[in-house]
Design a protein around this nucleic acid. Structure first.
Length: 99
DNA sequence: CGTGTGACGTCCA
DNA sequence: GTGGACGCCACAC
């Protein structure tokens, strides 16, 4: 039961757009909500991420992706997201909240 | 059709 | 905390 690639991208973008301001999610978390692997999420953002707040998606450990590392941390800090030595404090801003 | 690569994640030393 | 191995999925060659 697979959906067209466009639908997957749409679902990914939809979830990313629904991340509240000041909050941050991860590739894995988004992937689980959409029903795809984290690499599929990264792939979707790398091509069409310009239309969504891609910078609110970071790695599972709170670090940012290499190609956009500085840029992403800067944007997050500008939104009031607590960043500690190039890493987002996921314990404080992770979304959705996963116990 | 095998191989390499990438905005990832989990496990283990 | 750091680093290596493996798994995963989609895609270019």
């Amino acid at each position: 039961m697979s959906r067209p690639a466009e639908d997957v991208d749409e679902a990914v973008f939809d979830v990313v757009e629904s991340i509240p301001v000041g909050r941050v999610s991860t590739y894995g978390a988004v992937g689980r909500l959409v029903g795809v692997g984290p690499r599929r999420v990264a792939r979707a953002l790398s091509q069409g991420g310009a239309a969504v707040p891609w910078y609110r998606v970071v790695r599972a450990d709170g670090s940012a992706a290499e190609p956009v590392r500085a840029r992403q941390l800067e944007l997050l800090a500008a939104e009031g997201v607590p960043v500690r030595r190039q890493r987002v404090d996921l314990a404080a801003v992770r979304w959705p909240e996963e116990p």
